[in-house]
Design a protein around this nucleic acid. Structure first.
Length: 288
DNA sequence: CTTGGGTCCTGTGCGC
DNA sequence: TGCGCACAGGACCCAA
């Protein structure tokens, strides 16, 4: 899926066209994605003004002036594509209010009063949408229990050391656990562990505290760099304007099985090992 | 409580 | 060209 950097990139692309705009029309083409849509979703969205677009973990949150918040998760293959209207759009498209032809898996289409369109397309349908009272968003069952934002103040060295303490699970699984830290996925965990020189197989509770502490700024750096690059585009991911991210060119281990390790002086080869059903990419020589 | 495996879906790329 | 299989950025759920 889009991980935190991709979701943040999408949020930033949507904000200029959605914030302050009113949803003039909501087209919902099927009753569900991963879970059923909330009752009367189209009606509850129609006429609502989007006051603010936020992100929590891998969720995009659209606060509406109706007192409800639209919760969106992109799953593995979800995209939100902007077309027509708004600043920075193609002039011809803007003039004619043209929208691209409907595509397979366009599940939800939102048209704003300014003539912009946001299309949610999700081939695998692991994505989700729900509506919930804005003041109760943090208590929503999907968001409740999610750990601190890795780019926020609550995610610091003492926190991660404490969170890892006594954990026998591999550090790879611990970092993927959204209750420990929010928003990391397979790619950025692999990349952060490589930079930290920590093997994904190592038990979280058996990493020396200074090495755990070092992970904190490394995780922040990886995510920040990825956001700057517009995220990583592999298969399905696109920015809201349809452009590709380019952080994937910066991967040091992800998807690089059998390639030589890039660490200066290291003669190791990147390995791939499946942990809990997910591929971990790492250098056995410089990750311990 | 923790943890591994199965599961929900479709699409793509590869070996044969 | 076609077929079957492995694999893909997530994360819930349940059995052990």
């Amino acid at each position: 899926m889009p991980e935190l950097p991709e979701v943040e990139t999408v949020r930033r692309g949507l904000a200029p066209v959605l914030e302050g705009a009113r949803i003039a029309r909501a087209q919902v083409n099927r009753p569900d994605l991963r879970w059923p849509f909330p009752p009367r979703m189209a009606e509850r969205l129609t006429g609502a003004r989007v006051d603010r677009l936020r992100r929590r973990s891998k969720y995009i949150l659209a606060d509406l002036d109706t007192g409800e918040t639209l919760i969106v998760h992109l799953g593995m293959s979800g995209r939100m594509i902007v077309s027509g209207g708004g600043a920075g759009r193609d002039m011809l498209a803007q003039f004619h209010h043209l929208h691209p032809a409907p595509e397979k898996h366009d599940h939800v289409i939102l048209d704003t009063d300014a003539g912009a369109r946001v299309t949610f397309n999700d081939a695998r349908r692991f994505g989700a949408m729900d509506l919930c009272p804005t003041e109760a968003v943090e208590e929503h069952w999907l968001l409740k229990g999610i750990g601190p934002e890795p780019l926020g103040n609550a995610f610091d060295e003492p926190y991660l050391v404490a969170a890892f303490h006594g954990r026998r699970t591999p550090v790879k699984a611990a970092l993927l656990d959204q209750r420990i830290v929010a928003g990391l996925g397979n790619i950025y965990v692999c990349e952060a562990l490589f930079r930290a020189g920590i093997s994904p197989l190592r038990q979280a509770g058996r990493i020396a505290a200074p090495r755990v502490a070092a992970l904190v700024p490394i995780i922040r750096d990886v995510l920040t760099e990825a956001i700057s690059a517009g995220g990583s585009s592999l298969r399905d991911y696109r920015q809201a304007d349809g452009e590709l991210g380019y952080f994937q060119h910066t991967f040091r281990v992800y998807g690089r099985e059998d390639e030589p390790c890039q660490t200066p002086g290291c003669t190791g080869k990147i390995r791939r090992k499946v942990q809990a059903g997910r591929s971990s990419f790492y250098c056995p020589d410089c990750q311990r």
